[in-house]
Write a protein that binds this DNA or RNA. Sequence first.
DNA 1: CACTTGTATAAATGACCGTTCATATGAATA
DNA 2: TATTCATATGAACGGTCATTTATACAAGTG
Lengths: 91, 91
Amino acid sequence: MNGHLYKCLNNANRRKILYCIGKEEKCVNEIAECLDLEQSLTSHHLKDLYDCGLIEKKRKGKRIYYKVSEPEIIEILEKGKELGDRLEKRC
Amino acid sequence: MNGHLYKCLNNANRRKILYCIGKEEKCVNEIAECLDLEQSLTSHHLKDLYDCGLIEKKRKGKRIYYKVSEPEIIEILEKGKELGDRLEKRC
DNA sequence: CACTTGTATAAATGACCGTTCATATGAATA
DNA sequence: TATTCATATGAACGGTCATTTATACAAGTG
């Protein structure tokens, strides 16, 4: 899923993960619990996000911590959300 | 495809259409020719974009003219492109 | 009204995506 | 080293998407 930014963003769970680790790094289980997702599914999405370059990872002992790789990613998400909301009202 | 902004943006042809009618309105055949797409496929994508609120339409005689419904849509596209390029280099 | 032009729509198909389940790997600890 | 905890991976599935083909509709023109 390399270089497919929009593909990565086109999934609510992946977007939630980005918001979840936008300000603070978290390990896989924390993320999974935070979003009420299965560990396996969380790992799959994290891989997609990582391959796309949207997140970074760092191992600490058994755990692997992920965080969003640059702040503008969250800004774009927020702009996208605002735009989406605005467009919906238009109808 | 109502309210699915990212789904709409997650397709190169639809993004090209947005760029194509970002500054000036064009009719379906002009868009199709401009992007070298079949008329039918162009219409399908235009419907998706329209249902999402990303574009507006206006009939003039036989032809129907489409244009992007607000400038920020193109801005977001450009920000997305910049981010995507930046993330690719990172790898 | 018949015809032409411009656009939309419906069905079909192959490809891709998200999720789940089962299993593997990797690191720490007893 | 055997076990446990944390995470990753692979296969399989049902669903969705993009595209093509064929056809319908809508508006102007002869």
